Simulated assay, not measured.
Amino acid sequence: MSKISDVILRGVTGAFITNSGVGKIGMPAEHSAGLQQAAASGIPLMAKLPSDKFGTFIGYSEVGIGAALLAPFVPNKIAGAALTAFTGGLLSMYFRNPENTQADGIRPTQEGMPLAKDFFMLAIGLALMTQNEK
């Protein structure tokens, strides 16, 4: 990370994702099961993981992605790829639930607004992946 724009893109996004992950580690089993149900709506394979440990699994995953973004020795392409893959999973929940989008299937409803913000993280991940590093 050499440019101030890299520090801003990676720092803010990395801190946000890390904080989100820390909040999920050790969450109560009933909250973990609810999170798993939401995740499985976008990625059905998630339903096969143990529901009582799902929140902790996602929490550690988010902390890992956040740490990759925050670590200056991780190349932008790697950090961006991790963020893009993670955000792709989040957006799959957005698009696979009709209550999240208006009739056009793209614009968010009030229910979909919390997931629609993830388009910003997708853009950041793609920007990091496509930068020419010197």
Rank of each mutant, 00 (worst) to 15 (best):
86 F>D: 00
74 V>M: 09
108 P>V: 08
113 M>S: 11
111 E>Q: 14
73 F>M: 11
91 L>V: 05
117 K>H: 10
86 F>S: 00
107 R>H: 15
121 M>H: 00
102 Q>N: 12
99 E>D: 13
120 F>P: 00
125 G>T: 00
110 Q>M: 10
105 G>H: 13
125 G>R: 01
122 L>T: 04
119 F>Q: 03
72 P>S: 10
79 A>D: 07
80 G>I: 00
77 K>R: 15
73 F>I: 14
81 A>P: 06
115 L>G: 07
110 Q>C: 02
93 M>E: 06
81 A>I: 04
92 S>M: 13
100 N>H: 12
76 N>M: 10
119 F>M: 10
116 A>D: 09
68 A>S: 15
96 R>A: 12
120 F>Q: 04
101 T>K: 10
116 A>V: 06
113 M>D: 08
99 E>N: 12
124 I>D: 00
116 A>C: 11
120 F>E: 01
89 G>F: 02
69 L>D: 04
92 S>T: 14
118 D>I: 01
84 T>H: 00
92 S>I: 03
83 L>I: 00
105 G>F: 13
90 L>M: 13
124 I>V: 15
96 R>S: 13
85 A>N: 01
90 L>K: 00
92 S>E: 06
101 T>P: 14
109 T>C: 11
121 M>F: 04
124 I>Y: 02
92 S>N: 13
81 A>Y: 02
93 M>D: 00
71 A>F: 11
84 T>G: 01
95 F>D: 05
66 G>M: 06
76 N>G: 12
79 A>T: 08
97 N>H: 06
82 A>P: 01
74 V>K: 09
107 R>Y: 14
72 P>Q: 09
120 F>W: 02
115 L>T: 09
82 A>I: 03
81 A>N: 08
87 T>P: 05
85 A>D: 01
116 A>Y: 14
71 A>D: 13
102 Q>I: 05
102 Q>L: 15
113 M>N: 10
68 A>F: 12
107 R>E: 11
71 A>L: 14
112 G>Q: 06
95 F>N: 03
104 D>W: 15
121 M>T: 00
105 G>C: 12
72 P>T: 08
91 L>C: 11
95 F>M: 05
112 G>H: 06
67 A>V: 14
118 D>C: 02
69 L>K: 04
75 P>V: 08
101 T>G: 12
105 G>M: 11
126 L>Q: 09
69 L>C: 07
101 T>W: 09
100 N>L: 03
97 N>F: 03
104 D>M: 14
114 P>H: 07
93 M>C: 06
117 K>A: 06
77 K>C: 12
74 V>G: 07
91 L>P: 14
97 N>L: 06
69 L>A: 06
71 A>K: 02
74 V>N: 09
105 G>A: 10
83 L>E: 01
67 A>N: 09
104 D>E: 14
92 S>P: 12
72 P>D: 07
79 A>F: 07
68 A>G: 13
67 A>T: 15
110 Q>L: 11
66 G>E: 07
72 P>G: 05
119 F>V: 07
84 T>V: 01
117 K>R: 11
121 M>V: 02
73 F>A: 11
87 T>I: 04
121 M>L: 10
123 A>M: 08
79 A>W: 04
104 D>R: 11
120 F>K: 01
70 L>G: 08
98 P>V: 06
67 A>G: 12
117 K>G: 12
125 G>L: 01
127 A>Y: 03
